[in-house]
Amino acid sequence: MSAKKKKQITNLANGRPPVFNKPKSFSRKATKAIINKHHLLQKRKRQALKKGDKEEEARIDKEIEALGGLQKYQEASLQGQRHDRGGDSSRVLMEWLKSVLSPEKAGPSQRLRMLEVGALSTENACSKSGFFDIERIDLNSQSQGIKQQDFMKRPLPKDQSEMFDIISLSLVLNYVPEAKERGEMLRRTTQFLFPPGRHYPTPELAANFPSLFLVLPAPCVTNSRYLDDDRLEAIMGSLGYVKVCFKQSKRLVYYLWRRGQVPEESKARFPKKEIRPGSTRNNFAVILD
């Protein structure tokens, strides 16, 4: 592995794998084993980097290569994403919005601007709906119509022409490797959405936009030592978000958060704090300074 790749990266690219058009097929069990082992090795490598332990870093690199290297992990990761997604997660969003975006209430001239972070396809339910003008970005785009870009490095909007009515973060936040970076990603979404109070042609649209569509693996919220639905809602509330819709499936949790005014008294900090002890819990957390 080159010296460039050994540098510590503090952005989404450190966690989320790129997309391949034709990944090798893995069983669910094999997929989980490959992903879990690779994530463990990457965690150990980040610890070695922080300590400046070059020997340990080299040993971990050899273990990663013995597993088949980055390519096999990337293939397994995409396969795992497909298992976890259970298909197109944007179908849930469209189900929530189907009455709001019906032709009787929002004609073709009222297309909304969407930023889809971590886009995998240009053919999902939102794309086919005809209600959105979509800008799609991903860390490693393999498709035309998806711009290769790290959301955390995207230039901030210069004016409202570069802002959006809705941002989609579907199975993106969970790939950010550090809890503090997850908090910063959530905070950053507010900078790309139109300001609260934006005029919309119908009350139904105003009740749902501008907004953030957030999808996470269910255990991130249902089985974490450091995060549950109440704490996530408190974190989002401190950023001015109001929960509009929620759905939980066996593997995923889906949220629609409308951007509102940040409470004037909101100076709450959300450190890593155990709220649900237990040996079987995971360590997923969101830190917001």
Rank of each mutant, 00 (worst) to 15 (best):
E181S: 14
F164G: 01
N223S: 07
K128H: 14
R182N: 10
E264C: 01
I34Q: 06
A119E: 01
R281E: 02
P277M: 03
Q110H: 13
K180Q: 13
R113S: 12
D61Y: 09
Q47L: 15
P277W: 05
L214K: 04
S77L: 02
P217G: 05
L232F: 08
P203Q: 02
L115Y: 00
L193I: 01
S109T: 01
D61G: 07
R111I: 02
P17F: 13
D84F: 11
L212K: 05
L67W: 12
L288I: 11
T10Q: 10
S170M: 02
L256C: 05
K128Y: 04
L93G: 12
R111A: 14
P201R: 12
S127N: 12
I235V: 13
H199R: 10
L227W: 02
K98P: 05
R85W: 06
L93M: 14
G240L: 05
V176E: 15
Q191D: 12
V117I: 15
S238L: 07
P103H: 09
I9T: 09
K37P: 00
L115Q: 01
S109Q: 15
L112E: 02
I64V: 13
A125F: 01
E95M: 11
K4Y: 14
V242I: 11
S211R: 10
F209Q: 03
D138I: 09
E264K: 05
L173H: 04
